[in-house]
Structure formats: structure tokens, C-alpha cells
Design a protein around this nucleic acid. Structure first.
Lengths: 195, 195
DNA sequence: CCTACCATGTAAGACGTTACATGATTGG
DNA sequence: CCAATCATGTAACGTCTTACATGGTAGG
């Protein structure tokens, strides 16, 4: 259900086509939520059926067209209910934890490779998110600039502070994963011989 | 696909019925992976079709029966391939991060309630996982005892060390979430007035 | 006899991934 | 004219959730 609200959050800044939204999901906002085009277009249609957005067909060239969506008052109300309402938590399902708990069955090389790959993966994510945090602080992030453009200046600091908070959750997560995998490598080092 | 390997990991310790597995998923191992009965029974059937497990019908009372599964050599090979192979990473999708990044639209009370609930949620998870870690250290965890019973004594320390590692990922995650939400509360405190 | 527990599923739907599929426009 | 980009989907499949559904057994 988060896809719906991610889309509403983007559309609240200004009307966009499915393609526009998809591009944003591939870059900036894609860090916070991601969806492929094959999920976006049908979801927009469903949201329109539910009255949350309205799409308007625009001509493009002689025969082309694009459908630009904007948020309706019902969509705005639904969005505010989401942001003011509780978040549904699901049970944790961590493939990496599961695998780690059974690494006794792996060769030491495979165990080490798994943990090193884990570090590589989260390091790459961390780098991306920290770069975005830097752009948020400098207020050069395109997503943020669009948002600030439709926000009274008094509120700019608040908007920036919460964007930052969202990304800080991601960087905190990545750092925890890296630290954990590094401790894991020490464990592997303590038991070099396969049983 | 992790469900399949979670099931194999449990069945490698000894033959079990769907019901036995479900019980374990509700308690100890359920921290690492969880699935409802409606997912377990069909998956066991599929695994049997794939030759990874074999089920044997046992009589219970006069008319009752239960199907007890054990891992086949093919299942063992598949499990070892999984544990020695790479883990597939998917894109991060964090509803809490998404919501935090758009908290500017929430009332300060709702923002605070969200972050406090986040802390409560992860605190409860953390407590559970730490209790399990204590049971792992004391080697009183039922799951661990079953595992150690079929493991040569030389290997006990290794087995315990990796179980511990698996759970440490979860506790590390929970601590990061709590610390983040606490910082979030400070941010909310800095912007008490809704824009 | 009744309650707690043992035991096993089906069905519908939400959500997400991957692959397939098509065509128009714009700028060089 | 050609390539990059704009633009929009369908189809099949896998995973997971929630709800529905049924019946047997063991112990007090």
C-alpha cells in the first residue's frame, strides 16, 4: 500500500505522467521507495478509479499522447490520513540473518564471501544515500527543490529536516549491516576449520 | 525462496510434520523467518514434487494421520548450494523511511506518535531477540539444543557462534531503528509549530 | 463430554518481479 | 535518418497475507 502514498507524495508537488513518476522512482525518490513501470501505470489507473487522482490526456506531437495525473481533494485527504495515521508493521524477514544463523554448514570461504558481499552491498547503498544526504543539506536535490518551490519559505527548514530524517534511517541501517558483517568476519576467523 | 531453505534447515535437524514446523515458526526460529501454515503445507508439497524432501504418512489414533517429512540427498545438496551460494539482494523498501521523509505534512502530534510507536515496536522486538540471545548463550534454546544434539561436540562452539551472529543482526537493526526514532523525536521538538 | 491441541489444507487477493510488447517524438 | 528518450502497457509468475474450512485425538 506504500506505493500508493509514494505516488501521492510525488503528485502533490505537481501533476505528473506515469513516465515522470517512473523516472523519479529510478533516481532520487527511488531510494525511499521503488517500483517498476509495470506497477506504476496500473496503480495510477486504480487510484483514478478510487477518485484519488485525476488523469488528463495531453497531446504530444501529431499522434502521441500522455496522461498527466493530479491529486484530487479526496486524494489529498487520503494522503493526510496516511501520514497522520499509524504505520502497519510486519514481521521481520531477513534472508541475511537466516543465512548467517546457519553458516555453520558453509565452508569458511563461502561464509567469508557472503559477509564480504554483504559489506560491499551495504557500502554501495550507504555511499548513494550519503550522497543524497549531502544534496539535501545543500538543497540541490532535484526532488527537494521541486518540493521547496511549492512550500512557503518559513517551512523550508522543516521540510529539509524531515527529508534528512528519512534518509538517515537508511544510512543508519546500512551502517548497522556493515558493522555486523565485520563482526561476522571475525567470527569466521575464529573458526577457520570446517567441522 | 527463503521459506524453502528455512524449512530445509529445520528438517535437517530431524524429520518433522507441517504442524511441527509451523510451531517452530511461531516461536524460536520464527524470529529469523516466519510463515503461516497456509504457506508451509503447500510449500512442503512443492518441495516433495521437486524431490528435496520425502513425506511419510503416519497413523494417529484410529483414523487420524500426519505426514512427516525428511530431507533427501537432493534436498541436502540444494541446501548446501544455498548456504554456499550468494544471497540475492533486493532494493530497500522502508515504509518508515518513506513516511519520515514526508512528516512535514503531519501534525506534530502525529509525527511524535509515529516515532514513539516506532520505538515501542522495535523495543519489543529487541527484547524478544535479546532474550533469545541469552538462551543461545546459555544453550537452553530448544531450537539450538535440537541442533547440538545431532552435531559433534567439537562443532558446538561454531554452531552457537553463528546462531548468535544471526540474531545479532536483528538486535543491531532494532537498536539502529530505536536510535533513529529518538533522533527523530528531537527533530519534531525543534519544529513544534505546524507550517 | 468437553476443551485444548493436533493436523491439514483451500481460496482470494495484494504486492512485487521479470519478461514481453509496442509505438511516437525529438534532436542531431 | 537514426538514436535516445518519451510513453504506456500486458502477461506470467512468485511470494505473502487473511480468511475460510474441516476434522481427529488426548487428557481431564
Amino acid at each position: 500500500m506504500s506505493l500508493r502514498y509514494a505516488l501521492l507524495a510525488l503528485l502533490r508537488v505537481g501533476p505528473k505522467s506515469g513516465y515522470d513518476l517512473q523516472k523519479q522512482f529510478d533516481t532520487s525518490v527511488g531510494h525511499l521507495w521503488h517500483a517498476p513501470d509495470s506497477q506504476i501505470y496500473p496503480e495510477l489507473r486504480r487510484m483514478e478509479e478510487a477518485g484519488l487522482v485525476r488523469g488528463e490526456e495531453q497531446v504530444r506531437g501529431t499522434r502521441g499522447s500522455r496522461r498527466v495525473y493530479h491529486v484530487t481533494p479526496e486524494g489529498e485527504a487520503d494522503y493526510l490520513a496516511w501520514i497522520d495515521g499509524p504505520l502497519a508493521y510486519t514481521r521481520v524477514r531477513e534472508p541475511a540473518s537466516l543465512k548467517a544463523a546457519y553458516l555453520e554448514a558453509a565452508s569458511p570461504e563461502a561464509a567469508r564471501a557472503f559477509l564480504e558481499e554483504h559489506i560491499r552491498h551495504w557500502r554501495a547503498e550507504l555511499d548513494q544515500w550519503e550522497a543524497e544526504l549531502a544534496r539535501i543539506d545543500a538543497r540541490t536535490s532535484p526532488m527537494l527543490q521541486d518540493r521547496l518551490a511549492v512550500t512557503p519559505e518559513d517551512d523550508h527548514d522543516r521540510v529539509v529536516a524531515f527529508k534528512r530524517l528519512g534518509y538517515e534511517n537508511l544510512t543508519g541501517r546500512a551502517r548497522a549491516e556493515i558493522a555486523w558483517a565485520q563482526r561476522g568476519l571475525e567470527v569466521v576467523g575464529r573458526f577457520p576449520v570446517r567441522g
